[in-house]
Design a protein around this nucleic acid. Structure first.
Length: 493
RNA sequence: GGUCGGGUGGCCGAGCGGCUAGGCAGAGGUCUGCAAAACCUCGUACAGCGGUUCAAAUCCGCUUCCGACCUCCA
């Protein structure tokens, strides 16, 4: 009914009609991973969510420039050590070797989950110059100060002059003052506890460091996103995304830096994905409440009774809204697996359906309405669980047509074509799901047809022993035999 | 302690003033040599207590429980 896309904007805390800065084009920046460790499943959820968003925007006809960075420098630990440096020291590697190793692993996992690569994937270390320039701009505009070779962003002055600080995260600068802790290195160099480093002077042991007008050092950890989004998407762009744990301080500081450098809000729409939970709790390595993608696939974890394929995991995540917390449990995964299989069986069944009707039939309008409602759901802040619910209404119709509960005369050639096209678009193009149980084409189909034919003969002869032996033996090989009105079919179980 | 966001049927998970999704599990039925698959029917849920309203799971208040952020975090 409408083709307008509405997006929930974290900045204004409401759904807003999406209007791109340049008609037909979308610039989207998503905070990528820090590559000092194997990808976390939670990261995967966020990137699958934005992958779906990227795919849907593209489907709507937008030409999307999707920028997702790789952070390979700059994040400090509590003890002041750089994450990359620490990883390098532990593994006895060059920092860039650490970054490359985990970047490769990250890419592999993104591929396994069938996410599309971003248009540009810039690395923080490849943009040191841009970051130095941005520090200079902020200094030039009087919103930063230099202390012992480090440069700090002056949040107090920024808050006073613009009133913007804390807008995204709902924080008030006075409260930030009250709640600050003194466990950060160089805390005493700062004027105000909420001030943050945009350039850090490096110690001698520090491995990753560069020359700058202020010191040999490295950029502050919020700066890369400001610098790279500006470089590739301009000072103002459409969408900025990330996990909602990045809202503060990362995104808040990012806005401050952009405002500080050019006095403009970088992104029109801020989108935040919610957390992935494991058995109702945040994943945490120290508590043992965690599961890696590999453990999830292989089932080698105390949290799952068996392994679940990447597409089942993707389907599972699509069943909840990106802004809601998603609770991963073994029971929920089992339910998702069955739902996923039923969906793909229906898609397969759909291919075997043919209609002779060339004039509109009773079911045509009904199916078109369901499809149209599914797209409405997508337009309503990417409501994939709701759209998926509509799809399952279609699944029931498809199966009913195949088994004869609904006569084929109720649907036309056109109606059938419409369903095929819509399911293809939504399931494959937008949701990014793939059929994992697709038969390996080749000889398998032929073999199965032969076996089914032999079993059919046995059944005709009322040789139940033979027909049941075939069925049971195949079942042990995880092949399911399904006797229907229109003959026997099979699927991997 | 501060700031947000939540508590929906056995489980997961949408909905967010009237039309009470969907998946999985369960019960009954159709079909079947039997079973499975598929289809049909069913269960009537919204943390608790007040309030607003003709009407509240949906709005307001209080209570309670949970989560996120405030420190690296998707």
């Amino acid at each position: 009914m409408n083709n307008e896309l509405y997006i929930y904007n974290s900045l204004t805390r409401q759904k807003e009609k999406f209007e791109p800065i340049h008609a037909g084009f979308v610039g989207m920046y998503v905070c990528g991973p820090t590559v000092y460790n194997d990808v976390h499943l939670g990261n995967c959820r966020t990137f699958m969510s934005f992958d779906m968003i990227y795919r849907y925007l593209s489907h709507l006809g937008f030409k999307v420039r999707y920028v997702r960075n790789i952070t390979d420098v700059g994040h400090l630990l509590d003890d002041g050590e750089d994450r990359m440096s620490k990883g390098a020291r532990l593994d006895n590697l060059e920092p860039m070797e650490v970054a490359q190793k985990y970047t490769n692993g990250f890419h592999r996992m993104m591929q396994i989950f069938n996410t599309l690569p971003p248009s540009i994937e810039p690395r923080a270390t490849g943009h040191i110059l841009e970051q130095i320039e941005m520090v200079q701009s902020i200094l030039d505009r009087g919103l930063a100060y230099i202390r012992n070779g480090s440069v700090y962003f002056d949040t107090l002055k920024y808050a006073q002059t613009t009133g913007e600080y804390g807008k995204l995260s709902g924080r008030v600068i006075d409260e930030l003052l009250a709640e600050s802790r003194d466990n950060l290195k160089n805390q005493d160099e700062k004027n105000h506890p909420s001030d943050f480093a945009i350039w850090m002077k490096a110690t001698n042991e520090h491995l990753m460091k560069w020359n700058s007008p202020w010191s040999v050092g490295f950029p502050g950890w919020h700066l890369e996103c400001s610098a790279m989004s500006t470089k590739y998407l301009g000072q103002q762009f459409d969408i900025h995304g990330g996990g909602n744990d990045l809202k503060f301080p990362h995104h808040e500081n990012e806005i401050a830096q952009n405002m500080g450098a050019c006095n403009c809000q970088p992104a029109h729409y801020w989108m935040h994905t919610n957390m992935l939970l494991l058995n109702g709790k945040k994943m945490s390595k120290s508590d043992g409440n965690t599961i890696s993608p590999e453990e999830l696939f292989t089932g080698k974890s105390i949290h799952v009774s068996k392994g679940y394929s990447p597409m089942v995991v993707r389907f599972f995540m699509l069943q909840s809204h990106y802004r809601s917390p998603n609770d991963l449990t073994d029971e929920a995964l089992q339910a998702a697996e069955k739902g996923y299989k039923r969906l793909f069986e229906a898609i397969k069944n759909l291919d075997s359906l043919t209609s002779a009707l060339t004039t509109p039939a009773p079911l045509d309008a009904k199916c078109e309405e369901i499809i149209s409602l599914a797209f409405d759901d997508m337009n309503d802040d990417f409501n994939t669980p709701k759209a998926l619910a509509r799809i399952f209404e279609l699944v029931t119709i498809i199966n009913s047509l195949r088994d004869g509960q609904i006569p084929m005369s109720d649907i036309s050639v056109h109606g059938l074509e419409k369903i095929k096209q819509a399911l293809g678009t939504i399931i494959f193009d937008i949701f990014g799901l793939m059929n994992e149980s697709a038969s390996n084409a080749g000889p398998v189909d032929g073999l199965m047809n032969l076996i089914i034919d032999l079993r059919h003969q046995a059944r005709t002869n009322k040789d139940w022993a033979t027909s049941d032996k075939i069925r049971d033996s195949l079942n042990e090989l995880h092949i399911l035999i399904k006797d229907g009105k229109e003959g026997t079919s099979w699927s991997f179980n």
